[in-house]
Design a binder for these strands. Structure first.
Length: 265
DNA sequence: TTCCATGTTCCGCA
DNA sequence: TTGCGGAACATGGA
């Protein structure tokens, strides 16, 4: 679930729920997800403070604390956020729980324990440490930057779009969605794409992200011509009379339409 | 039971 | 030397 549109949805959720509420108590249930700091230190840095502002860089959600440091949440493949009042509503797999002054709780859950929780001094510090490229949905990330960045890659287009150090935010599912919509085969070498092709890919990335964020990253609400949420081989293509195929690209399961996504135009 | 999975990181090879 | 691709990681669900 958690690629850029999901994390942006989490960010907005946090803004209208736990933001500006004092954190009275902190429960760390899954210590292995806390990186670069001890459990005790994480608790100390959260307790008594509030999240006053949120940001997102790619798939990372950051919350500025009233102490002027930043809480970082990464959701791995199965992370989620839940805001609730009654203790019996506590979700399964809660890894970190913030008990707020209004008696509500914010739970960060992780089924597969692949995420990350930490404190950094600034969003820039996080980007530097993780070597994150610009957020693919940010205003600053222009079409020119996109084309120049992609040109540095010697690999195939899908893998390039997913490379977080080139641009951050797209994962396996949304990279497929973008290429599906723009009609480019995922294993097309970047060097075979001209500036016109790349410009179209850029426009499609922005449009797909805008649309899916609008629908709160819920595939059930996506337009019919999207195939996120319907990733299944041998299924009819929602855009043409073709059939959805599955392949392995850079070790990731990849879905594409064998008819309207040709390797060479 | 076996296989698969929306994440990142590490290692070997070209 | 640099960058790409595959494997590993942890764990639940189909």
């Amino acid at each position: 679930m958690p690629e850029l549109p999901d994390v942006e949805t989490f960010r907005r959720y946090l803004n209208r729920t736990a933001k500006n509420k004092r954190i009275d108590n902190v429960v760390v249930a899954t210590t292995s997800l806390v990186k670069d700091t001890s459990k005790a230190s994480l608790k100390r840095q959260l307790k008594g403070h509030r999240i006053t502002k949120t940001k997102r860089h790619g798939k990372y959600l950051l919350g500025r604390l009233s102490s002027d440091t930043w809480l970082v949440l990464h959701f791995g493949m199965t992370g989620d956020l839940q805001y609730y009042k009654s203790e019996e509503d506590e979700p399964d797999y809660t890894a970190l729980r913030l008990d707020l002054a209004n008696n509500y709780h914010l739970a960060y859950t992780s089924r597969r324990k692949l995420g990350e929780v930490r404190i950094v001094s600034s969003p820039d510090e996080l980007a530097e440490e993780k070597e994150l490229g610009p957020d693919v949905y940010s205003k600053q990330f222009s079409k020119r930057m996109f084309i120049d960045t992609v040109r540095r890659s010697r690999g195939v287009i899908k893998t390039t779009l997913m490379n977080q150090s080139m641009m951050s935010g797209l994962g396996n599912v949304y990279a497929d969605e973008v290429l599906f919509q723009v009609g480019v085969h995922p294993s097309t070498p970047v060097k075979k794409l001209d500036d016109g092709d790349l410009g179209k890919i850029y426009n499609t990335i922005r449009r797909v992200l805008r649309t899916t964020i609008t629908h709160k990253a819920d595939p059930d609400d996506f337009p019919r011509t999207y195939f996120t949420g319907k990733r299944e081989s041998n299924r009819a293509c929602p855009r043409c009379s073709g059939t959805i195929r599955k392949a392995q690209i850079s070790g990731r399961p990849t879905y594409y339409c064998s008819r309207h996504q040709k390797k060479n135009k």
